[in-house]
């Protein structure tokens, strides 16, 4: 005889499986900086400059030509195509950690020394080399899990945007 508890557990597992198959999108890649965290995604359609591109004091994108100019990435899962511009990139992102405005995690498309060193010294879970382009698949406002220990990014819930 199946207990109600077992039924409930099986039903919950079934729901989770359904969610996993229909709602959850999992991107698989490689962990760059270890760690696991859940948070809200901020997706930058364009590459990001460090020096001259962000203000570490406020964790805000300041490049005037950037579509996210004025938007803060502090505590967000920052999803972006790659790092561009000055080699000050890593130092500027390290400063966001030292000044308390760092993103919660990083997910990027294009591997470069700037982006990798930046992630290492920002010390937040980071994943790249994904099987799908995260900038195309993830949307701003999505609730995501970045698991750099397994190299996966999971969209747990779509945002309203």
């Amino acid at each position: 005889m199946i207990s109600s508890e077992q039924e409930a557990a099986e039903s919950l597992a079934g729901t989770k499986a359904a969610l996993a198959s229909t709602d959850q999108i999992v991107l698989r890649g490689r962990g760059i900086v270890p760690g696991k965290i859940r948070g809200e995604a901020l997706v930058s359609p364009e590459t990001i400059s460090g020096w001259g591109g962000i203000d570490p004091a406020t964790g805000t994108i300041i490049e005037r030509r950037h579509s996210l100019c004025g938007v803060s990435f502090a505590d967000k899962v920052l999803v972006f195509p790659g790092a561009k511009g000055s080699s000050g990139w890593s130092g500027f992102f390290q400063s966001t950690r030292l000044l308390g405005t760092a993103p919660a995690a990083m997910v990027f498309t294009k591997m470069t020394t700037k982006a990798v060193l930046g992630a290492v010294v920002t010390r937040v879970p980071t994943v790249s080399e994904l099987d799908q382009d995260p900038v195309q698949v993830i949307r701003t406002g999505d609730f995501v899990e970045v698991d750099a220990d397994t190299g996966t990014v999971t969209i747990l819930q779509r945002g309203n945007g």
């Binding site: 080699s87 000050g88 990139w89 890593s90 130092g91 390290q94 470069t112 020394t113 700037k114 060193l117 930046g118 290492v120 010294v121």
Partner: peptide, 8 residues
């Protein structure tokens, strides 16, 4: 050279 940073 790669484009190195402050720490590297």
């Amino acid at each position: 050279s790669n484009c190195e940073g402050t720490a590297s």
